[in-house]
Design a protein around this nucleic acid. Structure first.
Lengths: 256, 256
DNA sequence: TAGTTTTTGATCGTTTTCGGTCGTTTTTTG
DNA sequence: CAAAAAACGACCGAAAACGATCAAAAACTA
């Protein structure tokens, strides 16, 4: 087994497990503990994880108040992209079809909104986004693209924080497309990161038409921070698990 | 078996396997390990895969945008590009070694500055950049990264224009690293895009120590817009084609 | 065909990786 | 709090991988 493969295996495990042990890795990968220690040291030096006594934990780019690992709940971009692919893609396709020539569109960072990019058919829209990779992909497709300024969060590749909110002020969007971690009748629309939530809230405020992208798995979930009430915009979903949501929000349901 | 066939076989394997070994390929393709190593080196330099100790892994698209597919390029062109890559990389490595803990560093968009990212060894620096992909790569490596706001230019993946210059104002860099298209004794430092030049000029103005990255091929070239005089900062290059430059600028020359 | 260029395989000194040992540090246990 | 256990890192030697070099083989050219 190549050193590089071990590196990737360790990092993959850390995305799901929130911690790994030297002894376990040594057994599972069939190499000595010395080697695992070296690997972990190298990955730590490279800034890809945090070495702790007995093993390693994922490196969170914004330090949790206790300095503890919070990765068990919030996975990173690639991981998230893998799950619920079909549903995400359907929702995204529908959302993309709403974009028209002349629109000034805000596209939120995130995997679901990212799916939209390949499905945008009209050519005359202008885009603003806080997703660094989204911006690159949009620009490649030939669109006029503006990026927000501010700190780049490694895990979600999103520009966040007060700087990002500031640089939003001058825009007046005709449409905005926002992803969400949770949709709940009591808590409304929620997301895991407070700084990301600030950006979402501001973008919604500045937009004429608001669209929330939420595949069916998001309903009933509540993340750390509420960024908008349920009726902040139209919720686009593949399947609505509970008709009760209709009383509180405008819902676009793809499968009946 | 033709070289071309081996190239394709290796690339095909990498699409399914996530890694290949020199020893395996040597046996399977019936050629010596030397040959496989040469093949892998060539494919790596062409940007089609990533060479690792013991074999190779697929190239993830986060490296740089020089990684286009080169199916039928003439040998001469490929050879030339390879040499330039080496020189760029040397220059970048030297530049990266100048970064220290505590620095607030501006990194300009561009391929040469992009090479720096993999070679930054210290962990305690903070970065500001107008390169969208640079930002993503820096963030992945665990650095604190800030992006400028503004329009994203598709070709260079750089944030440019007045918005970008505005969002620069608040920073005071300890060091900045700027790429250039041309270095000329009369015209100074030049670049092709007027909006990119504005960002470069402002970043230089805001920085205590200024470093210009220019491989030897850039000397004597003049692009459309001058963004700074020759003595705006230290010019880092692999080889200085003409000693006369020393009279006008501070030069760091790698090969004497 | 003869001469040139390119590709390939073998060699060899150098570098990198890896597992085991051992003294030290950290954590757990009593 | 002290002893025991576990984990650690530094070090070393063996093994593997590497790159540079060179000569033979193959492909190309005049």
């Amino acid at each position: 087994m190549l050193q590089y493969e071990r590196f990737e295996t360790i990092m993959n495990k850390l995305q799901k497990q929130s911690s790994v042990r030297v002894s376990d890795l040594s057994r599972e990968l069939g190499v000595s503990e010395s080697t695992i220690r070296r690997d972990i040291s190298d990955l730590d030096k490279a800034g890809r994880l945090k070495k702790v006594f007995g093993g390693a934990v994922p490196k969170t780019d914004d330090t949790d108040f206790a300095g503890r690992s919070v990765n068990a709940v919030s996975r990173n971009v690639e991981e998230k992209a893998r799950i619920q692919v079909d549903e995400k893609s359907e929702v995204a396709m529908r959302a993309a079809s709403l974009i028209e020539d002349g629109d000034l569109v805000y596209i939120d960072a995130g995997t679901t909104t990212g799916c939209m990019i390949d499905h945008i058919s009209c050519q005359g829209a202008t885009f603003v986004t806080n997703g660094a990779r989204h911006a690159i992909r949009l620009a490649r497709r030939g669109f006029k693209v503006y990026l927000l300024s501010g700190r780049l969060k490694a895990k979600t590749e999103a520009v966040i924080g007060p700087g990002a909110v500031d640089s939003l002020h001058k825009y007046h969007f005709s449409k905005c497309f926002i992803g969400t971690d949770g949709v709940d009748r009591e808590s409304g629309l929620t997301t895991a990161d407070i700084e990301e939530s600030m950006v979402k809230t501001k973008a919604i405020e500045l937009s004429q038409d608001v669209f929330i992208l939420a595949d069916s798995s998001k309903f009933g979930l509540v993340a750390s921070v509420t960024f908008a009430p349920l009726d902040a915009g139209a919720i686009i979903t593949d399947r609505l698990p509970d008709e009760a949501y209709r009383r509180q929000a405008r819902v676009v349901e793809l499968h009946r």
